[in-house]
């Protein structure tokens, strides 16, 4: 699905990623944990194609294709999705209009026909319901005045609508109450499929009780310093990053 090889990337001249390598197979769930400022969000932005996140060396292959050669919207159409740590607000554009535009836009980039309008609405409504996204939230301008937790649930709604091959969730659990955390986790689990992979960035092992990862990685100083199975998350919780990363270094 995704293979990152020895990736170096800098932001505004400052090198953040320093030789990051990671391989994600189809259907797998990977979790990335790591201290603040380690480069987790930077990794997700570099993968999603954000301007100003300059890859200086290394390679990324996504579904057999050179991901870095694609524009951000083309990466999305190819099946890459990023749930933002801080979702943006867009005044004047309703949540529903935005979703529809995104779905149709991706279809067009793939050379497919637009989704039938009636079908689309039906699909949004049922998906929204399972994620506790209210009708009101669908009609309001995108993310404007949404609470922190509402924004995160809305990110998961977008993911469910766009049905990506690889979904990167950047701290989607931060700011969620306990019930919302379960709702979001269920939403993610419902999407788990043999041809769909997840990269879950989190600070809390609790999320991993709900979304059980196949692999856990520790990102520190711009690269993966340790990898293991889900027990690594428990170990981290117990000992903290410092002890573990020191050992690795």
């Amino acid at each position: 699905m995704l293979e990152i090889k020895d990736l170096y990337a800098s932001v505004q001249g400052k090198e953040i990623l320093k030789g990051l390598s990671l391989k994600i197979g189809a259907g797998e769930v990977h979790a990335i944990m790591g201290p603040n400022g380690a480069g987790k969000s930077t990794t997700s932005y570099a993968l999603a194609g954000r301007e100003g996140y300059d890859v200086t060396s290394g390679s990324v292959t996504f579904k057999g294709e050179d991901l870095l050669a694609l524009k951000a919207e083309e990466r999305a159409a190819k099946g890459l999705f990023l749930a933002f740590q801080y979702p943006l607000e867009i005044p004047g554009v309703s949540n529903l209009t935005f979703l529809k535009t995104a779905v149709n836009s991706q279809a067009r980039l793939r050379g497919e026909a637009d989704l039938d309008a009636v079908q689309f609405l039906k699909f949004v409504r049922t998906t929204a319901k399972t994620l506790n996204v209210s009708e009101d939230m669908l009609k309001r301008p995108l993310n404007v005045g949404f609470s922190g937790g509402e924004k995160k649930r809305n990110e998961v709604l977008q993911m469910a609508m766009l049905k990506p091959s690889l979904a990167i969730l950047d701290e989607t659990d931060s700011g969620l109450d306990i019930d919302a955390l379960k709702v979001v986790a269920e939403g993610v689990n419902a999407l788990r499929a043999p041809d769909r992979s997840f990269l879950v960035i989190t600070h809390y092992q609790r999320l991993l009780d709900y979304i059980v990862p196949d692999f856990v990685h520790v990102l520190a100083g711009g690269r993966i310093v340790r990898s293991g199975d889900k027990s690594l998350a428990l170990l981290l919780e117990e000992q903290g990053y410092e002890a573990l990363t020191e050992k690795a270094a």
Binding site: R50, E73, P91, G92, S105, L162
Partner: peptide
């Protein structure tokens, strides 16, 4: 944010301005 959802920049501008 729009691009990451598959909406090219110029279309995103049109979407936001129309809103």
């Amino acid at each position: 944010y729009c691009q990451s959802r598959g909406i090219p920049a110029e279309e995103a501008v049109a979407l936001i301005v129309n809103g």
